[in-house]
Amino acid sequence: MEDPYTFSICDTSSFSDYICGGIVSQVKVTKEISFKSLPTSRAEPDFVITDFAKYSRPPQLHIGFQALHQFYAQHGQPPRPHNEEDATELVTLAQAVNAQALPAVQQKSLDEDLIRKLAYVAAGDLAPINSFIGGVAAQEVMKACSGKFMPVMQWLYFDAVECLPEDQEAFTEDTCLPCQNRYDGQVAVFGSGLQEKLGKQRYFLVGAGSVGCELLKNFAMIGLGCGEGGAVTITDMDTIEKSNLNRQFLFRPWDIRVSGMDVSDPT
């Protein structure tokens, strides 16, 4: 086999003239893989590149997250949202980590602005991002259990800095203070102003199947339409089948053969 798409056979110069036909049998060869230990992988990382426009970003984040772990070990908590003192301390820790890193990992120019943004949002907790990371983790578990697919052997840093408000100077620590509810992790990233706007939204969702159910879960977790004047209206014209139950959580076995429109209390 020369590559995943082509293969070669033995020397055919002594064969008779080719007429037609032929059978090729694929033989799957077992491959053993080994993983670096965590300390070795941390010192000599490989990265999954998900956005080639940010090719140099993962090594910077690798340094930043090591500094973040040190900050947590020292203080027992992540940096406070948009707190300049904590952000400056994280930058200092990142510079120390970078100075001690191996030459292959060490960054000639540490992106201090990126490290500061990491400090600002380190206390955040976003349900849609959790859904993505959870999906990747579940897929890796499936790979480990089945042994059929190659696992991810690199570090994955999901970077969505573009989602942050452009006018960071308008953000202060006061606008990101926790309100003691399940939206505190989101307020820590985007501020209380955006949370209020999300609560006032009015959305109409067509279909509450496997995809619609996931959307509804994220809508609830981010507080969409949950404030004064807000609402989420749902419609689903399909009849609930048994096969639907394993890919959503709105319906139960007693809802089978019932129209989605007729289920008054699906939970």
Rank of each mutant, 00 (worst) to 15 (best):
V189H: 02
D113L: 11
D46N: 05
T235D: 04
V206S: 07
E32Y: 10
P39L: 00
L245I: 07
P128Q: 02
S109F: 07
H82R: 13
F219C: 09
T30N: 11
G199T: 02
S243L: 10
T40G: 00
E162F: 10
Y203G: 05
R247C: 06
L194Y: 14
H69L: 09
G185K: 05
L164E: 05
A208R: 03
E162W: 11
V105W: 02
I49W: 00
Y72L: 07
S14K: 14
C10E: 10
D159S: 12
V24C: 02
L215Y: 12
M153Y: 10
R252G: 13
H69P: 00
I23N: 12
R182E: 13
L118A: 04
L216I: 08
M150I: 14
S16F: 01
G135R: 08
I129G: 00
L38Q: 01
K108L: 14
E84F: 11
S146M: 08
M221E: 08
A119Y: 01
K36A: 14
C145L: 14
E85P: 01
S259V: 06
D174H: 08
F251T: 14
E241S: 09
C145H: 11
K108D: 15
S56D: 15
I9A: 03
E140G: 03
T235F: 10
S13E: 13
I129R: 01
L38P: 00
V97I: 12
A67P: 09
Q66T: 03
